[in-house]
């Protein structure tokens, strides 16, 4: 039944003995961990959404200079960031493969894939750190310009979320060592994979936004009413 339909129910009406529809179905115990993950992703989405909105608002002040759009700007041709994105994409693919293998009950192979995903994510973090270093060397420090401040801030917040994912995943890795049932491994891995894909998606959005030219950012800001 739709949510609206549920909200229209008149709960005081008597249901005939033994015919109460509420008692005919098993209680919806669902999969609380997945529900929790969905709500958590909602919360994280709001965090990034608000960061992005403040960036767009802040971009309309005179001292904001986009990091791309002109040949001399650091992200005019963000080659390194494309490489980093590829690493994160591979990590996501590895996670997905790990999940697929676990579903096939090929747990050894699955474990390898998941560990590869972790290595790739750690690699992504290092690569992001390399970008920070390059950016700083190029003269775009943390406080040089709000655009570069936002670059460091947003990528750092993204990395913190990835790190959280790795911590959660390390809990899952224990299940492999301790030879938990396949079902439990698949369950945990499904959630982690969802989170991985989600963070890859977030990265793409951040990547697109942070390497936008001033014109693009201005039109986005105008679209949001700034």
């Amino acid at each position: 039944m739709s949510l609206i339909g549920k909200l229209m129910e008149k709960p005081w009406l008597a249901q005939p003995e033994g015919m109460d529809p509420a008692l005919l179905v098993a209680p919806n115990t669902g999969w609380p961990a997945r529900t929790a993950l969905r709500f958590f992703l909602g919360t994280v989405t709001v965090i990034f959404f608000l960061f992005i909105m403040t960036l767009l608002g802040r971009s309309q002040m005179g001292d904001f200079h986009a990091l791309a759009g002109e040949p001399w700007l650091p992200f005019d041709r963000p080659v390194q960031l494309w490489w980093n994105s590829a690493i994160l994409l591979l990590s996501s693919i590895a996670m997905h493969a790990g999940l697929w293998l676990a579903r096939q009950n090929r747990l050894q192979a699955s474990l390898l894939a998941v560990m590869l995903a972790v290595v790739l994510v750690l690699g992504f973090m290092l690569a992001q750190g390399y970008v920070w270093q390059q950016l700083a060397v190029a003269g775009f420090g943390l406080t040089t310009n709000p655009a570069s401040s936002y670059f460091y801030l947003l990528t750092a917040v993204h990395l913190v979320h990835l790190l959280g994912g790795v911590v959660a995943l390390s809990g899952l890795l224990r299940r492999y060592w301790q030879q938990h049932s396949q079902a439990r491994i698949v369950a945990g891995l499904t959630l982690c994979t969802t989170y991985w894909h989600y963070l890859f998606g977030i990265w793409l959005v951040l990547f697109a936004l942070l390497t936008s030219s001033a014109g693009t950012i201005d039109s986005l800001a105008a679209l949001c009413g700034f």
Partner: peptide
């Protein structure tokens, strides 16, 4: 709050006993 809140929401959504519909 987030840890607690996720718990409350999931509990209300998925740990209601038999017969406890949303509107009850």
């Amino acid at each position: 709050f987030t840890m607690g809140g996720l718990n409350y929401v999931c509990t209300i959504l998925q740990a209601r006993t038999k017969g406890m519909t949303l509107m009850r």
